[in-house]
Design a protein around this nucleic acid. Structure first.
Lengths: 218, 218
DNA sequence: GTCTATATTGCGATAGAC
DNA sequence: GTCTATCGCAATATAGAC
């Protein structure tokens, strides 16, 4: 059972931060425990005072990251708002989080295969809760007639993909803040479910205004 | 200079296929050269008869995969068709390819960091060509007035994300064929750029019809 | 071109002093 | 709880016979 308390040792936090950065940039298998220790300013052995194995570090990051995402989208919209507002608010929060925390979110989204089966199953439960939030919003919008899509599940998946894929290409050096990205993607999500964006939310055509700022790996 | 001919040795092809599968499922750093050799039914040493290093195998896969994607989207639409048709055709082809070849495309999209700087730069050039295709279609649609978006680059990125992210979650055991996915995502792409889908392309509401088939890691 | 055997290095994890 | 030192093994890559 994973009933680990988030024991608040400063060293522990430094190690986890170092691991997030390393895993995010070089991948779990591309990162050595020595990398993590060095980035945290410690000896290789220090890692094992706080964590049993390298995989266990990944699990902590992954589980906690998923919980954080779940929290963010739960808190994003009032319970009593309609499907359109809920979808916009949820996407705004989901997208902004993925951009703001793109390194951590990269680990969260792309390193599931490196977990032990037991740990992976635990994380998958959290992922399913996240997926359900999007499914239920789209389902609600279809029931009220606010949304119109040919496949509920694919549409929800497409909307989530917008957020998830940000972690692959996003750079804070690029032209977009997490908030701007959240806003525009919220608009895109509404369009995907067949809601015409209110003209107030639709800013003037600024196509090409951002210019060619392409991040290398995009 | 990478002027390597695609020398058509059967053994070579078997090794590359084995590497695609292994890299796709366990990641580059999670795969050993012994894994590759074993999957190809050969001894560990046999790998080095055909490839200088493990990274060089990844480079071959990555470069060739990118070229294939570029080809697919180039061939997808007639030169003289309008932006709406071109966008739909390109997304259809792009998405179907990523679903059909989801393991290879996963390597293509997620293993750039494992390449040497030189190889990565070469691959990034190919990626830019792919990005440009989408940019130019959206730009064209804005110029003709067929499309309406608040940010050209973000919209093109969002559309590409639909295809790229498929490689993370797609399973052939799921309810969707690559073609169905391509069709629905083409519709979503049109909506993202503000084109209302023609009613002929919009199938009857079948929300919930697919049921709960969620793939584990989605 | 394929094999067996191996050189060599790097990595996860531990031992034991302070 | 941190360190230095190190164990044991796995990984990339090579040597050399057939």
């Amino acid at each position: 059972m994973a009933t680990e308390q988030a024991r608040g040792s400063a060293t522990r936090a430094r190690l986890l931060d170092a691991a997030v950065t390393a895993f995010g940039n070089k991948g779990f298998h591309g990162t050595t425990t020595r990398d993590i220790a060095a980035a945290a300013g410690m000896s290789p052995a220090a890692v094992y005072v706080h964590h049993r194995t390298k995989e266990e570090i990944l699990f902590q990051i992954s589980a906690e990251g998923h919980r954080q995402i779940l929290q963010v989208i739960h808190d994003s919209a009032a319970e009593d708002s309609g499907p359109t507002d809920r979808l916009a608010a949820t996407v705004r929060a989901f997208v902004a989080f993925h951009a703001e925390n793109h390194v951590k979110a990269r680990v969260v989204n792309y390193e599931l295969a490196a977990l032990t089966e037991e740990h992976r199953n635990e994380v998958i439960k959290l992922r399913r809760s996240i997926t359900q939030v999007f499914h239920e919003i789209v389902r609600a919008g279809l029931q009220t007639g606010d949304f119109s899509v040919s496949d509920m599940e694919i549409s929800a998946t497409a909307i989530m993909s917008l957020g998830v894929d940000i972690t692959r290409w996003y750079s804070p050096d690029g032209p977009w803040t997490p908030e701007v990205l959240g806003e525009i993607y919220a608009e895109s999500a509404l369009r995907i479910v067949g809601v015409a964006a209110p003209s107030s939310a639709l800013q003037a055509h600024r196509a090409g205004a951002a210019g060619q700022t392409a991040h290398a790996a995009r």
